[in-house]
């Protein structure tokens, strides 16, 4: 096997599988999105009109945008803040392990504890009453607070991941540059703002993309804690797809998958260009 052809043998099994399991069936989904579900007749844009007119779809899109729009900037900022602080202490490894630990917490176990904490008779209410805080005796998962609970869960689970990424980025910044700035009389804050942060731009794109990837997995916790039809504020696209799937609304699903797939594709390619320019 010569060098020029070798890649074919290494890549083929994976590529064939990707074609078979993802790319080709997705092409079929695109075709189906223009057909009626049962008879398979050409339906034009009817499925798409149905999806965009669907209230559940609109709610889900809105919530998904709100959730990512709220969580990702918060996560990126908190991660950076913590990583900057952590890069100044000695027992980094131990503290970092603690932050990473929730990654090892099985989703189902999270659900058990969350129920104890946030149900009507849970700990949060107990202490809210004891210290007479507002918002007492509420089932937090059944109110708009569910949104913030889910956001908190996401941050609890993924903060360590983000911190590790930021720490790697910070360690990658040229030490000499920082030293030179120091010699030139730049203070700590100046070094942070003018030298370190601009050099971390590349890391930031990466972190945004991976945070986004992980934010979609929060559906697991949401589902296990609140079921298929949670409070409206956390009804996400993931819930919607799952419910359509259960109800065999395949035509709507096809159109929605194409729409979401296209939005993701554009978003990813856009971020990637920014990524390449770093």
């Amino acid at each position: 096997m010569g060098k020029r052809r070798a890649w074919v043998f290494f890549l083929m099994p994976s590529f064939a599988g990707v074609l078979l399991f993802v790319v080709c069936p997705f092409a079929d989904v695109v075709k189906r999105s223009f057909q009626t579900a049962i008879t398979g007749e050409f339906a034009g844009l009817r499925n798409y009109r149905m999806v965009f007119g669907n209230t559940a779809f609109r709610t889900a899109v809105k919530n998904t945008f709100l959730f990512t729009g709220f969580c990702i900037p918060l996560m990126v900022a908190m991660g950076l803040f913590l990583a900057l602080a952590l890069s100044n202490v000695r027992h980094v490894r131990f503290i970092k392990s603690l932050y990473l630990f929730p990654m090892a917490m099985p989703t189902a176990a999270v659900a058990v504890v969350w129920k104890m904490l946030f149900y009507r008779q849970g700990f949060l209410n107990k202490y809210a009453v004891r210290f007479s805080l507002p918002g007492r005796a509420v089932d937090y998962l059944g109110t708009g607070a569910a949104f913030f609970l889910l956001a908190g869960t996401y941050i609890w689970k993924n903060l360590g991941y983000t911190v590790v990424l930021w720490l790697a980025g910070i360690a990658g910044v040229n030490g000499e540059m920082m030293e030179a700035a120091k010699v030139d009389g730049a203070g700590r804050l100046e070094r942070l703002v003018y030298v370190l942060l601009p050099n971390l731009k590349g890391s930031m794109y990466t972190i945004v993309v991976l945070s986004f990837l992980n934010s979609f997995k929060i559906y697991r916790e949401a589902y296990l804690v609140a079921g298929a039809y949670p409070h409206e504020s956390i009804y996400m696209l993931q819930h919607l797809f799952n419910n359509w799937f259960v109800n065999l609304d395949l035509d709507k699903m096809a159109a929605a998958a194409v729409v979401c797939g296209a939005v993701f594709l554009v978003g990813i390619l856009f971020l990637q260009r920014a990524w390449d320019e770093r």
Partner: peptide, 30 residues
Amino acid sequence: YEFPLCRWLLTVYIVLMLLPFQVTMLSSYL
């Protein structure tokens, strides 16, 4: 290795890595 469409294929792999399960759920089912 360097091969034709290498960069392009890598981009495809990245996009697929980032697509949430729900988007490809129907195609997987089919």
